[in-house]
Design a protein around this nucleic acid. Structure first.
Lengths: 163, 163
DNA sequence: CTAAAAGGTACTTTTCTAGTACTATTTTGT
DNA sequence: ACAAAATAGTACTAGAAAAGTACCTTTTAG
């Protein structure tokens, strides 16, 4: 329900993992996939996009890999998601039937229409813009701590009777 | 990019429109569809779900329709979206490969895992929970004001070279 | 009784996601 | 310098979900 796609998730996870490493360290997609427990092929797909836009720097050849190209504080989720998820279907104008174009972020922020759906998207975007990679990576120093997590909060019973 | 589905959008739009009406006023799906410029059939689909859960009250027969069953202040987006979008694919645990179940909201809020993707979903949910229908409906007193909107902020040039 | 409106069911089409296979490029080792 | 190996990058395919359509049933005011 309004969840990030796998590709986006992998991308964020990889970025966050890279952020937790020494800046000069070059990590191959294979390494990242292993450490983060995500399928390699899909991760490569995400890394390609991230490298193309300039979020990460790619080093080719043997001993190649990826390296963060920006400071984690300078990466916000709104841009990251927009990059990975593609600029597809950005909150069509429901209000104006004759003008069903796809609103860019710039348009959205200036749109005079008070359509509630538009409002949600705007607020959502504003919210994501405030979340930085640095915040997400905080505490994510190493993926190995995941193994240590005891998973005590499993609660098999659904607890809340939703649908 | 992380946008609401059409069904959800229609649902929110309808709820918001109902919120702007006198409480006793019963509006048919047809009326709402016309006023809000959304396809009738899809809107009926959304209204059905909303009525089933109890967000709106339905009145059958001629002159029937829908009426808001809750105070707009008591409706938050997180629940509304969860209702309309279904409980599908709620932020799978990426961190633990052996435990790829779908986390409920309860689990999510107690999850000890520091996986950044999980974090995003949690924060997203917290954010949506704070947004109420009352806030969205504010200023949406009548759909007719949409016609009056001059759409001056068209800006054809994409501005930012995303893709 | 009739018409209007909700409620329900089922289906088709379209789009997006997830995953796989393949190609191109660079560096290391001989 | 050349070949081999490792890696990034590209392209493609199948499956699932969303969007939209259509039809039929139930209810009830007039």
């Amino acid at each position: 329900m309004l969840a990030l796609t796998k590709k986006t998730s992998y991308g964020i996870l990889a970025m966050s993992y890279l952020a937790s490493q020494p800046v000069d360290r070059v990590l191959s997609a294979r390494q990242i996939a292993q450490e983060c427990h995500v399928p390699l092929s899909l991760l490569m797909n995400a890394m390609k996009v991230l490298a193309g836009v300039g979020y990460v720097e790619s080093v080719r050849g043997p001993r190649g890999g990826y390296r963060l190209a920006r400071r984690p504080e300078d990466v916000n989720l709104a841009d990251l998601v927009a990059t990975l998820e593609g600029p597809v279907r950005q909150a069509q104008c429901l209000s104006d039937p004759a003008n069903q174009h796809e609103c860019t972020q710039v348009e959205m922020s200036r749109c005079p229409v008070v359509d509630p759906v538009h409002r949600v998207h705007r607020r959502l975007n504003d919210f994501l813009r405030k979340v930085t990679l640095a915040e997400l990576a905080e505490g994510h120093t190493d993926a190995s701590l995941v193994e240590a997590a005891p998973q005590t909060a499993a609660l098999p019973g659904g607890a809340s009777g939703e649908k």
